[in-house]
Nucleic acid binder design. Structure first.
Lengths: 140, 140
DNA sequence: CAGTATCCAGACAGATACTG
DNA sequence: CAGTATCTGTCTGGATACTG
Protein backbone atom coordinates (compact mmCIF):
# COMPACT_ATOMS: atom_id res chain seq x y z
CA UNK A 1 0.00 0.00 0.00
CA UNK A 2 0.80 3.66 0.05
CA UNK A 3 2.72 3.54 -3.20
CA UNK A 4 0.68 6.26 -4.85
CA UNK A 5 1.11 9.37 -2.80
CA UNK A 6 -2.43 10.63 -3.05
CA UNK A 7 -4.24 13.23 -1.08
CA UNK A 8 -6.77 11.41 1.12
CA UNK A 9 -4.96 11.40 4.42
CA UNK A 10 -1.88 13.48 3.66
CA UNK A 11 0.47 11.16 5.49
CA UNK A 12 1.67 13.96 7.73
CA UNK A 13 3.50 16.14 5.27
CA UNK A 14 5.32 17.81 8.13
CA UNK A 15 8.84 16.66 8.86
CA UNK A 16 8.71 14.19 5.99
CA UNK A 17 12.17 12.75 5.85
CA UNK A 18 13.85 15.39 7.94
CA UNK A 19 14.97 12.52 10.05
CA UNK A 20 15.83 14.33 13.23
CA UNK A 21 19.58 14.73 13.40
CA UNK A 22 22.07 14.38 16.22
CA UNK A 23 21.97 16.94 18.95
CA UNK A 24 25.40 18.52 19.09
CA UNK A 25 26.66 19.52 15.66
CA UNK A 26 26.90 23.30 15.32
CA UNK A 27 23.90 24.25 13.24
CA UNK A 28 21.73 21.16 13.48
CA UNK A 29 20.18 22.46 16.67
CA UNK A 30 17.88 24.36 14.37
CA UNK A 31 16.85 21.21 12.61
CA UNK A 32 16.21 19.79 15.99
CA UNK A 33 14.05 22.59 17.24
CA UNK A 34 12.25 22.70 13.96
CA UNK A 35 11.41 19.04 14.23
CA UNK A 36 9.44 19.84 17.37
CA UNK A 37 7.90 22.94 15.93
CA UNK A 38 6.79 20.94 12.95
CA UNK A 39 5.20 18.59 15.40
CA UNK A 40 3.59 21.25 17.56
CA UNK A 41 3.31 24.20 15.23
CA UNK A 42 0.40 23.07 13.11
CA UNK A 43 -3.05 24.41 13.59
CA UNK A 44 -4.55 21.80 15.88
CA UNK A 45 -1.88 19.90 17.78
CA UNK A 46 -1.71 22.37 20.64
CA UNK A 47 -5.46 22.32 21.08
CA UNK A 48 -5.61 18.54 21.12
CA UNK A 49 -2.68 18.17 23.48
CA UNK A 50 -4.19 20.68 25.89
CA UNK A 51 -7.58 19.00 25.82
CA UNK A 52 -6.05 15.59 26.41
CA UNK A 53 -4.18 17.23 29.26
CA UNK A 54 -7.49 17.22 31.10
CA UNK A 55 -7.84 13.47 30.70
CA UNK A 56 -8.55 10.82 28.06
CA UNK A 57 -11.12 11.67 25.45
CA UNK A 58 -13.00 9.93 22.68
CA UNK A 59 -13.02 10.95 19.05
CA UNK A 60 -16.21 12.93 18.81
CA UNK A 61 -15.67 14.25 22.29
CA UNK A 62 -12.43 15.80 21.09
CA UNK A 63 -14.17 17.00 18.03
CA UNK A 64 -16.59 18.98 20.13
CA UNK A 65 -13.91 20.29 22.47
CA UNK A 66 -11.70 21.44 19.63
CA UNK A 67 -14.65 23.41 18.33
CA UNK A 68 -14.42 24.01 14.60
CA UNK A 69 -12.03 21.21 13.74
CA UNK A 70 -13.04 18.98 10.86
CA UNK A 71 -13.12 15.20 11.10
CA UNK A 72 -10.28 14.99 8.69
CA UNK A 73 -7.99 17.35 10.56
CA UNK A 74 -8.78 15.66 13.86
CA UNK A 75 -7.84 12.33 12.37
CA UNK A 76 -4.69 13.70 10.80
CA UNK A 77 -3.61 15.43 14.00
CA UNK A 78 -4.28 12.40 16.19
CA UNK A 79 -2.43 10.11 13.79
CA UNK A 80 0.59 12.36 13.89
CA UNK A 81 0.64 12.49 17.65
CA UNK A 82 0.13 8.77 17.86
CA UNK A 83 2.95 8.18 15.43
CA UNK A 84 5.31 10.18 17.59
CA UNK A 85 4.27 8.32 20.71
CA UNK A 86 2.71 11.39 22.28
CA UNK A 87 -0.81 10.05 22.48
CA UNK A 88 -2.11 6.52 22.80
CA UNK A 89 -5.11 5.15 20.98
CA UNK A 90 -7.21 2.49 22.67
CA UNK A 91 -10.00 0.72 20.85
CA UNK A 92 -12.76 -0.77 22.96
CA UNK A 93 -14.38 -3.50 20.86
CA UNK A 94 -17.93 -2.55 21.68
CA UNK A 95 -20.89 -1.78 19.45
CA UNK A 96 -20.80 0.99 18.51
CA UNK A 97 -17.04 1.17 18.67
CA UNK A 98 -15.33 3.39 21.20
CA UNK A 99 -11.85 4.76 20.73
CA UNK A 100 -10.11 6.53 23.53
CA UNK A 101 -7.18 8.88 23.10
CA UNK A 102 -4.86 9.86 25.94
CA UNK A 103 -1.54 11.55 26.46
CA UNK A 104 1.40 9.25 27.01
CA UNK A 105 4.11 10.08 29.52
CA UNK A 106 6.13 11.91 26.89
CA UNK A 107 3.00 13.63 25.69
CA UNK A 108 2.51 14.95 29.17
CA UNK A 109 5.96 16.53 29.19
CA UNK A 110 5.10 18.17 25.89
CA UNK A 111 2.08 19.63 27.60
CA UNK A 112 4.47 21.28 30.03
CA UNK A 113 6.35 22.90 27.20
CA UNK A 114 3.18 24.13 25.62
CA UNK A 115 2.16 25.68 28.90
CA UNK A 116 5.53 27.43 29.21
CA UNK A 117 4.89 28.83 25.79
CA UNK A 118 1.48 30.01 26.91
CA UNK A 119 3.04 31.70 29.92
CA UNK A 120 5.53 33.52 27.75
CA UNK A 121 2.75 34.65 25.50
CA UNK A 122 0.65 35.97 28.34
CA UNK A 123 3.65 37.83 29.70
CA UNK A 124 4.57 39.46 26.40
CA UNK A 125 1.26 39.77 24.66
CA UNK A 126 0.72 43.44 25.29
CA UNK A 127 4.20 44.28 24.12
CA UNK A 128 3.77 42.37 20.90
CA UNK A 129 0.34 43.78 20.27
CA UNK A 130 1.60 47.31 20.79
CA UNK A 131 4.64 46.78 18.61
CA UNK A 132 2.49 45.32 15.89
CA UNK A 133 0.06 48.21 15.96
CA UNK A 134 2.89 50.73 15.89
CA UNK A 135 4.57 49.03 12.98
CA UNK A 136 1.34 48.81 11.04
CA UNK A 137 0.65 52.48 11.62
CA UNK A 138 3.99 53.50 10.14
CA UNK A 139 4.01 50.98 7.32
CA UNK A 140 1.02 50.04 5.16
CA UNK B 1 -0.62 51.38 -1.87
CA UNK B 2 -1.27 47.88 -0.72
CA UNK B 3 -4.82 47.91 -2.01
CA UNK B 4 -4.34 44.97 -4.31
CA UNK B 5 -3.32 42.01 -2.22
CA UNK B 6 -0.69 40.62 -4.51
CA UNK B 7 2.02 38.10 -3.89
CA UNK B 8 5.29 40.02 -3.83
CA UNK B 9 5.96 40.26 -0.13
CA UNK B 10 3.09 38.32 1.35
CA UNK B 11 2.47 40.80 4.14
CA UNK B 12 2.93 38.13 6.77
CA UNK B 13 0.09 35.79 6.09
CA UNK B 14 0.53 34.27 9.52
CA UNK B 15 -1.82 35.42 12.26
CA UNK B 16 -3.63 37.65 9.84
CA UNK B 17 -6.47 39.10 11.84
CA UNK B 18 -6.29 36.61 14.68
CA UNK B 19 -5.83 39.61 16.83
CA UNK B 20 -4.48 38.01 19.95
CA UNK B 21 -7.29 37.68 22.45
CA UNK B 22 -7.49 38.19 26.18
CA UNK B 23 -5.66 35.75 28.36
CA UNK B 24 -8.18 34.28 30.76
CA UNK B 25 -11.28 33.11 28.96
CA UNK B 26 -11.61 29.31 29.08
CA UNK B 27 -10.66 28.20 25.58
CA UNK B 28 -8.88 31.23 24.22
CA UNK B 29 -5.64 30.02 25.74
CA UNK B 30 -5.32 28.01 22.56
CA UNK B 31 -5.68 31.10 20.44
CA UNK B 32 -3.06 32.63 22.61
CA UNK B 33 -0.55 29.84 22.28
CA UNK B 34 -1.27 29.61 18.60
CA UNK B 35 -0.47 33.26 18.18
CA UNK B 36 3.05 32.55 19.37
CA UNK B 37 3.35 29.39 17.40
CA UNK B 38 2.29 31.28 14.32
CA UNK B 39 5.06 33.70 15.11
CA UNK B 40 7.68 31.09 15.87
CA UNK B 41 6.47 28.06 14.00
CA UNK B 42 7.38 29.04 10.48
CA UNK B 43 10.34 27.65 8.72
CA UNK B 44 12.95 30.30 9.47
CA UNK B 45 12.07 32.32 12.55
CA UNK B 46 13.77 29.95 14.95
CA UNK B 47 16.96 29.95 12.94
CA UNK B 48 17.06 33.74 12.72
CA UNK B 49 16.28 34.23 16.39
CA UNK B 50 18.99 31.78 17.39
CA UNK B 51 21.58 33.41 15.15
CA UNK B 52 20.72 36.85 16.45
CA UNK B 53 21.09 35.37 19.91
CA UNK B 54 24.82 35.38 19.22
CA UNK B 55 24.82 39.11 18.56
CA UNK B 56 23.66 41.64 15.96
CA UNK B 57 24.02 40.63 12.35
CA UNK B 58 23.69 42.24 8.94
CA UNK B 59 21.43 41.08 6.16
CA UNK B 60 23.78 39.03 4.06
CA UNK B 61 25.57 37.87 7.15
CA UNK B 62 22.32 36.32 8.34
CA UNK B 63 21.75 34.99 4.90
CA UNK B 64 24.97 33.03 5.08
CA UNK B 65 24.39 31.85 8.63
CA UNK B 66 20.87 30.65 7.88
CA UNK B 67 22.37 28.57 5.10
CA UNK B 68 19.88 27.85 2.35
CA UNK B 69 17.42 30.64 3.08
CA UNK B 70 16.35 32.75 0.13
CA UNK B 71 16.52 36.52 0.11
CA UNK B 72 12.80 36.71 0.03
CA UNK B 73 12.24 34.46 3.02
CA UNK B 74 14.91 36.26 5.01
CA UNK B 75 13.22 39.58 4.32
CA UNK B 76 9.79 38.19 5.13
CA UNK B 77 11.00 36.60 8.36
CA UNK B 78 12.86 39.70 9.52
CA UNK B 79 9.90 41.94 8.74
CA UNK B 80 7.64 39.75 10.81
CA UNK B 81 9.98 39.76 13.77
CA UNK B 82 10.47 43.48 13.47
CA UNK B 83 6.74 44.02 13.35
CA UNK B 84 6.29 42.15 16.59
CA UNK B 85 9.06 44.09 18.26
CA UNK B 86 11.27 41.04 18.62
CA UNK B 87 14.14 42.32 16.49
CA UNK B 88 15.33 45.84 15.79
CA UNK B 89 16.49 47.12 12.44
CA UNK B 90 19.15 49.79 12.31
CA UNK B 91 20.15 51.42 9.05
CA UNK B 92 23.62 52.92 8.90
CA UNK B 93 23.51 55.54 6.15
CA UNK B 94 26.77 54.55 4.54
CA UNK B 95 27.67 53.66 0.98
CA UNK B 96 27.01 50.86 0.41
CA UNK B 97 24.19 50.75 2.95
CA UNK B 98 24.51 48.65 6.07
CA UNK B 99 21.52 47.35 7.96
CA UNK B 100 21.97 45.73 11.30
CA UNK B 101 19.45 43.42 12.91
CA UNK B 102 19.45 42.59 16.61
CA UNK B 103 17.23 40.97 19.18
CA UNK B 104 15.28 43.35 21.36
CA UNK B 105 14.77 42.66 25.06
CA UNK B 106 11.58 40.76 24.39
CA UNK B 107 13.23 38.96 21.53
CA UNK B 108 15.84 37.75 23.97
CA UNK B 109 13.20 36.22 26.22
CA UNK B 110 11.81 34.46 23.18
CA UNK B 111 15.24 33.01 22.66
CA UNK B 112 14.95 31.49 26.11
CA UNK B 113 11.71 29.80 25.17
CA UNK B 114 13.18 28.48 21.98
CA UNK B 115 16.08 27.01 23.93
CA UNK B 116 13.69 25.33 26.35
CA UNK B 117 12.04 23.81 23.36
CA UNK B 118 15.38 22.61 22.10
CA UNK B 119 16.13 21.04 25.46
CA UNK B 120 12.84 19.18 25.45
CA UNK B 121 13.56 17.95 21.97
CA UNK B 122 17.01 16.68 22.89
CA UNK B 123 15.59 14.92 25.88
CA UNK B 124 12.82 13.18 23.97
CA UNK B 125 14.28 12.79 20.54
CA UNK B 126 15.15 9.14 20.84
CA UNK B 127 11.75 8.30 22.15
CA UNK B 128 10.00 10.08 19.32
CA UNK B 129 12.29 8.60 16.72
CA UNK B 130 11.69 5.13 18.04
CA UNK B 131 7.95 5.59 18.26
CA UNK B 132 7.88 6.94 14.75
CA UNK B 133 9.86 4.04 13.36
CA UNK B 134 7.66 1.54 15.18
CA UNK B 135 4.49 3.14 13.94
CA UNK B 136 5.75 3.25 10.39
CA UNK B 137 6.72 -0.37 10.54
CA UNK B 138 3.23 -1.43 11.55
CA UNK B 139 1.38 0.95 9.27
CA UNK B 140 2.28 1.84 5.66
C1' DC C 1 24.69 45.64 0.07
C1' DA C 2 20.00 45.20 1.00
C1' DG C 3 16.42 44.64 -0.59
C1' DT C 4 11.49 44.24 -4.33
C1' DA C 5 8.68 42.09 -7.72
C1' DT C 6 6.75 37.95 -9.94
C1' DC C 7 5.88 33.40 -10.94
C1' DC C 8 4.82 28.95 -9.46
C1' DA C 9 4.93 24.13 -7.19
C1' DG C 10 3.51 21.87 -3.43
C1' DA C 11 1.81 21.62 1.29
C1' DC C 12 -2.12 22.58 4.66
C1' DA C 13 -6.53 22.45 5.58
C1' DG C 14 -11.86 23.08 4.80
C1' DA C 15 -16.24 21.07 2.85
C1' DT C 16 -18.56 17.23 1.62
C1' DA C 17 -19.91 12.51 0.88
C1' DC C 18 -19.46 7.75 2.03
C1' DT C 19 -18.44 3.35 5.24
C1' DG C 20 -17.58 -0.69 8.78
C1' DC D 1 -19.29 6.13 16.56
C1' DA D 2 -15.06 6.62 14.30
C1' DG D 3 -13.35 7.09 10.73
C1' DT D 4 -11.81 7.19 4.93
C1' DA D 5 -12.00 9.20 0.23
C1' DT D 6 -12.04 13.21 -2.85
C1' DC D 7 -12.20 17.62 -4.50
C1' DT D 8 -10.76 22.23 -3.95
C1' DG D 9 -9.15 26.67 -2.44
C1' DT D 10 -5.53 29.08 0.03
C1' DC D 11 -1.20 29.88 1.92
C1' DT D 12 3.89 29.00 2.21
C1' DG D 13 8.02 29.25 0.51
C1' DG D 14 11.53 28.42 -3.34
C1' DA D 15 13.60 30.24 -7.87
C1' DT D 16 14.63 33.99 -10.42
C1' DA D 17 15.23 38.62 -12.11
C1' DC D 18 15.61 43.43 -11.15
C1' DT D 19 16.77 48.03 -8.23
C1' DG D 20 18.47 52.19 -5.13
Amino acid sequence: MRTTDHDHLPARGKAPMTDVAEADSPACTYELVRSVLDRVGDKWTVVIVCELGNGPRRFNELRRLASPITQRMLTVTLRGLERDGLVSRTVHPTVPPQVEYALTGVGRTLLTIVRDLADWTEANLDHIRTARAGYDRVQG
